[in-house]
Amino acid sequence: MSGIPYERLKAFEGRVAATAGRGRDPVNEPMIRHWCEAMGDTNPAYQGPDAIAPPTMLQAWTMGGLSGHTGRSGAHDELFGLLDDAGYTSIVATDCEQEYLRPLRPGDRIVFDVVIESVSERKTTKLGTGHFVTTRMDVRAEGDPEPVGTHRFRMLKYAPAPKKPRVGRPRPVINRDNAGFWDGVGAHRLLIQRCGGCATLRFPWLPGCAACGSPEWDTVEAGGEGTVYSYVVMHHPPFPAFDPPYAVALVELAEGVRMVSNVVGVPYDKVRIGMPVRLEFLRVAGDADGEWELPVFRAVVGSGG
């Protein structure tokens, strides 16, 4: 891996990466409905003849799919090619920031411009050493010169750090809002919060009810039955104590709430949406402080999943 003079990288700041890019589809009701169902968002503003699109869908309207977009300039590819040649061959998305200026409505057609906003000096992280690249996308509705929102996307282009000996599973962050949940897991009980005001069940645990605002709550114990609502297969990047590829599922419990966990008992490439699963508790080795419990879901074999 060779270093790149920072002045050479900094020269990419302000260069255009895409001009007048177009969303592949107009803002539309079916995509809004699918998004709201996946997110469990029942806000009435996203329904009916005067519906608006959820603001957090801003990036969804600009995505190019597998075939990508036309009209992208060479600045982005040139920068990433330069980093690749210097040995920074891996990439991971680190974070994004969105600013919403006005709502989008069904029928709006999306156009956008993208600029390389910043390239950091060389940074060393747990993943490896590299450079953070931030792009800014200004999103507009066709025919309107004013932006409807801005999307900043930050990536790390890096050279992977040398592999370290396998270590124990990192412990979850436990605080006053979720300590009761992890106490339950330690006792092999999966506890769901129930609002003391409107009896709405909620997961993950929160200090107050999103439906009525009440801070009062108690718990109900999940029976353990569920189905795979959605899932992803993790391939990269690898982290200590995790051995990709493996499936991470969004499991819908019989009680109606959803939680993220691993599916065990079947190969990662056999996990399917709708697959019935049942709760069990997995004992794992921690980094340096003994063993602890995790709730996972075992595929129910022979049930048509």
Score class of each variant (00 low, 15 high):
196 G>V: 11
196 G>W: 03
197 G>F: 08
197 G>L: 04
197 G>K: 04
197 G>M: 05
197 G>A: 11
197 G>E: 12
198 C>N: 02
198 C>R: 01
198 C>G: 09
198 C>M: 05
199 A>T: 14
199 A>C: 02
200 T>I: 09
201 L>R: 14
201 L>G: 02
201 L>S: 07
202 R>F: 13
202 R>W: 03
202 R>Y: 08
204 P>I: 06
204 P>L: 04
204 P>Y: 05
204 P>Q: 08
205 W>T: 06
206 L>D: 13
206 L>A: 15
206 L>Y: 05
206 L>N: 10
207 P>A: 14
207 P>M: 13
209 C>R: 12
210 A>G: 14
210 A>S: 14
210 A>N: 15
211 A>H: 13
212 C>F: 10
212 C>T: 04
213 G>N: 13
213 G>T: 12
213 G>D: 12
214 S>F: 12
214 S>R: 04
215 P>I: 14
215 P>Y: 11
215 P>N: 03
216 E>A: 15
216 E>K: 04
216 E>I: 00
216 E>M: 02
216 E>L: 05
217 W>V: 05
217 W>C: 12
217 W>S: 15
218 D>F: 12
218 D>A: 07
218 D>V: 06
220 V>M: 05
220 V>C: 05
221 E>Q: 13
221 E>I: 01
222 A>F: 02
222 A>W: 06
222 A>T: 10
223 G>I: 03
223 G>S: 12
224 G>V: 05
224 G>A: 03
225 E>Q: 12
225 E>G: 13
225 E>S: 15
225 E>V: 00
226 G>W: 10
226 G>R: 04
227 T>M: 11
227 T>P: 01
227 T>I: 14
228 V>M: 07
228 V>N: 09
228 V>E: 03
228 V>T: 07
229 Y>F: 15
231 Y>P: 00
231 Y>W: 13
232 V>F: 00
232 V>T: 15
233 V>N: 14
234 M>Y: 08
234 M>V: 15
235 H>C: 11
235 H>K: 04
235 H>P: 04
236 H>W: 09
236 H>G: 03
237 P>E: 06
237 P>F: 08
238 P>N: 02
238 P>M: 07
239 F>M: 12
240 P>C: 05
240 P>Y: 03
241 A>Y: 00
241 A>V: 02
242 F>D: 01
242 F>L: 06
242 F>S: 01
243 D>N: 02
243 D>R: 01
243 D>E: 09
243 D>F: 10
244 P>W: 00
245 P>V: 06
245 P>Y: 06
246 Y>G: 01
246 Y>W: 05
246 Y>T: 00
246 Y>M: 01
246 Y>Q: 01
246 Y>C: 00
247 A>G: 00
247 A>T: 06
247 A>P: 01
248 V>E: 00
248 V>W: 01
248 V>C: 01
249 A>D: 05
249 A>F: 01
250 L>T: 06
250 L>R: 02
250 L>C: 02
251 V>H: 09
251 V>A: 10
251 V>D: 10
251 V>G: 13
251 V>Q: 06
251 V>Y: 04
252 E>S: 11
253 L>Y: 00
253 L>S: 07
254 A>L: 09
254 A>N: 02
254 A>G: 14
255 E>T: 08
255 E>Q: 06
255 E>W: 04
256 G>K: 07
256 G>C: 10
256 G>E: 11
256 G>T: 05
256 G>D: 09
257 V>Y: 10
257 V>F: 07
257 V>M: 13
258 R>E: 07
258 R>I: 06
258 R>W: 08
258 R>S: 04
259 M>D: 06
